[in-house]
Simulated assay, not measured.
Amino acid sequence: MSTAAHAIFPAPPIGHAAPSSALRDALPVIDLAALGDATRHTPLHARLAHIARDIGFFYLEGHGIDTAQIERLQAISRRFFELPPQAKERIAIRNSRHFRGYTGVGGEITRLRPDLREQIDFGEELPAIDESPDTPAWWGLQGPNQWPGELPELQREILAWQEAARQVAKRLLQAFLVALEQPATALDALVAPPHNNRLKIIRYPSQEHGRPDQGVGAHKDGGLLTLLLQDKVGGLQVLTPQGWLDVPPRENAFVVNIGEMLELATNGYLRANEHRVVSPRSGASRYSIAYFFSPSLHAQEVPLLDLPPHLARLARGPESDPHNPLFTHIGTNALKGRLRSHLDVAQRYYPDLAPRR
């Protein structure tokens, strides 16, 4: 990893609060279209900043993505998981040093425990960086995707979704910047091409009562913003001071949460929130599509925004677990997360950096 990278080590994060069945309040809803001109601060921007700081999760409507496109992506995602096991295994993530491809149930690790989900990971469709002794390991994150030959339509829909979601995420990021009294373009260089955004399509199989139910373990997302599209089966929960709050599905709305890189850029004014997915018990699988809007590897470092004094006073600094440090260097931070989550890829392509079991 780059020796220029440095970790952020403030006070350790607060531990898990006890689950609370008394939490019934739904997450707030933000209408992206209502935020209007990204150059003018409005009361809606102030509400956005308040929600993001104090809650960290919200529903996003008014995003402008056509319902038909959403339905096509959801349908073809289900078709992918219906492919024969051997078809999915041909594009297994262990065959890609770029961390792209299929992972079976239990193949991804969160907090040292296997996640009970199967998924396929995509990134931006870009050429690989040539390997050499002087090339930092994190350049291995850039490269082509793996596509199932049995489902050629998937590539078209995924690439179209990446473009649509990128535009929504950039508009939302600009709205955040205006809300924090920054120029809307303040982080344009951070998200300029070549892009480094990721996409997962995920299936959580039903688990019987009495069996482990870690669909995905409690974690924070590492990018700037996450746009999550859920189906009608619940299971997503966000940690609040009162305990775990259910995030029920809302048709054609994204669930949005802040990532650690935006927490770094705002010196902790905006906070990445801890969340998890509990496996469904209903006998039906849960499907979701997660888009991770992330800094470009070419941007190198996450800049620190110059917040006005009345906001800077409320910035508590970013949280960082000494066992999972945050780095201001983008590539170092991104690779660290992948190595921990995908031990098969780490051991095959990054043996000197692979975590020990």
Rank of each mutant, 00 (worst) to 15 (best):
A7S: 15
P13H: 04
I14Q: 13
L23F: 01
A33T: 06
D66C: 14
A75N: 14
I76Q: 13
R78P: 09
F81M: 03
L83W: 04
P84L: 02
N95G: 02
D115Q: 05
L116G: 08
E118M: 03
G123N: 00
E125S: 09
D134C: 00
P136E: 06
L141I: 03
G143N: 03
W147Q: 06
P148G: 09
A169G: 05
L173V: 03
E181Y: 06
A186P: 11
V191F: 02
N196P: 03
N196E: 06
N197L: 03
K200I: 04
I201R: 05
I201Y: 02
Y204T: 11
Y204K: 14
D213Q: 15
H219W: 14
G234W: 03
Q237K: 04
Q242P: 04
D246H: 15
P248T: 03
P249A: 12
A253D: 10
V255F: 12
A265L: 12
L270T: 00
R286P: 02
Y287W: 10
Y291I: 04
F293I: 02
H298L: 06
Q300R: 09
E301F: 13
P309A: 13
G317H: 13
G317E: 08
P322C: 13
G337T: 00
G337H: 11
R338C: 07
H342F: 11
L343D: 00
A346T: 01
D352E: 12
